[in-house]
């Protein structure tokens, strides 16, 4: 792992809100072909750590590097364009637009055709074909013309994955992708993530509470506790550490 070139790296990344240090000097590197689960009790700073990487929150100190480029000062869209793909914890779609249009927008973002004013969106056949393909991949072809808001929760999460895939990012960030799903909705989403993993070029970051999901997917686990990185290693070893037992299992994660 250590001799591969990191796709994403954080360096003493910190942010404070008022007097509160939410993320405290977190240094971590993420490698291609590796799925890293980020665990920790509620309020440990996992989602804040994600927000610092994808740019929704600016760091108070420290750096973020993506493919060797310092992206700490870049905006959210600038980071996305450089290969950072993020799915959100709370379903975060374009509710009034059709399922197909949701995906088409993500495909269009990747194709950088957003300033075509006088061509018809429906005439960009290559983008439409790719969108249809992605809907097929996540199993939503039948719902293509329904508004995103009409989808079930599980289907919305699948659509979220389709948007992420559309961007063809180098780094995938999933924030509790199976949260709030019914039992039978979970496996298809996990299969999608496993499929991304099989492409050895991509680094995957996964914030997750569910132990079975971590066991099934993670190559590596890092533990955040009170904003600090307290453990890092292969899942079996990390989960056995006393500090993790205390920090993570000591608190029963009620969400997710």
């Amino acid at each position: 792992m250590a001799n591969a070139v990191a796709l994403l790296r954080t360096e003493a990344l910190s942010v404070r809100f008022g007097g509160e240090v939410a993320v405290d000097h977190v240094s971590a590197a993420f490698y291609p072909g590796t799925l890293t689960a980020i665990v920790g009790p509620n309020g440990a700073g996992k989602t804040t750590f994600f927000n610092l990487i994808s740019g929704q929150i600016r760091a108070s100190a420290g750096e973020v590097w993506l493919k060797g480029e310092r992206i700490t000062r870049l905006s959210v869209p600038q980071r996305a364009r450089r290969g950072l793909g993020r799915a959100f914890q709370l379903t975060n779609l374009f509710p009034g637009l059709s399922v197909f249009e949701n995906v088409r927008l993500a495909v269009q973002a990747e194709a950088r055709r957003d300033f075509r004013l006088l061509s018809l969106a429906s005439d960009h056949h290559d983008l439409n074909a790719r969108s249809a393909e992605l809907l097929e991949t996540v199993g939503l072809s039948k719902r293509a013309s329904a508004p995103a808001s009409a989808l079930s929760h599980g289907d919305q999460r699948k659509l979220e994955v389709a948007l992420l895939l559309a961007g063809q990012p180098d780094v995938f960030m999933f924030d509790e992708p199976t949260a709030g799903m019914s039992v039978d909705e979970v496996p298809p989403v996990l299969d999608l993530i496993a499929a991304i993993k099989r492409d050895r070029e991509k680094a995957i970051l996964l914030v997750e509470h569910k132990m079975d999901v971590i066991r099934a997917l993670a190559d590596r686990v890092i533990v955040l506790h009170q904003g600090r990185l307290v453990a890092d290693g292969v899942p079996e070893a990390v989960m056995a550490l006393a500090v993790v037992q205390e920090a993570y299992l000591g608190s029963t994660g009620s969400e997710g």
């Binding site: 959210v76 869209p77 996305a80 959100f88 975060n92 374009f94």
Partner: peptide
């Protein structure tokens, strides 16, 4: 279509790039 995306969810539109 991007304008509609901004109306529906500006936050997500930015995250798409």
């Amino acid at each position: 279509r991007v304008l509609q995306a901004i109306r529906e969810n500006p936050f997500r539109a930015e995250a798409l790039g």
